[in-house]
Amino acid sequence: MGPGVIEVFLQYWPMFLNGLLGTLKYAAIAVFFGSVLGALVAMCSLSKNKIIRFICSVYVNVLRGTPLLVQMYIAYFFVPLAFESLSFLAKEQCVILSLILNSSAYVSEIFRSGINAVDKGQTEAARSLGMTSVHCMQKIILPQAIKNILPALANEYIAMIKETSLAGTFMLYELMYTRTLLANKFLTWQPLFIIAAIYLLCTMVLSKLVGMMEKRLSVSD
């Protein structure tokens, strides 16, 4: 059986800490760039143009309807092979890119539903006053939609923290990858429980924070 969980943790905690920092970093990158891209996709999916809407729905459905692990394999093995012009991307960057694209599909739905949840009368009132559609979105709809969007976006970050564990498969240094590193030292089972505990602690603390944020946002209603 080897040494116990606590012993392993005390000995190798800097490794787990680095792994955790990697996890938080990759999740942040994925959600941040995923939000930028997702906002764009959301705007397009609210467009009046049927073709643009169709393309968006294909994009969202494919990325949400296939496992992230499969998307990562495709990004890791296939994309650099198939597209010469993308060969400047390191393998690591391909994996991060797949995280971003995957996140963007979920975030675009968060934006879209957040915007749709704002009463249609708000748009009608703004447009009837002669406000342009861009100003209406900027000054009337988005400031109200943000209340629905922010908590959901934070939850997406929490989900992404768990999703990034798949990136360890491709040797990105995140929390799950510490298992591979320690398995080389014949520590096969202890790291799993340490990793699980760290994930659990992170998601619980962050969920609590989101709950508090939601409460504060609803107070201003």
């Binding site: 009463d119 447009r127 009837s128």
Partner: peptide, 16 residues
């Protein structure tokens, strides 16, 4: 539309 004001049943004031 700037020249055509409209008032709605549900008021539609901007709550924020």
């Amino acid at each position: 539309r700037q020249k055509i004001g409209m008032v709605f049943q549900q008021f539609n004031v901007f709550p924020h």
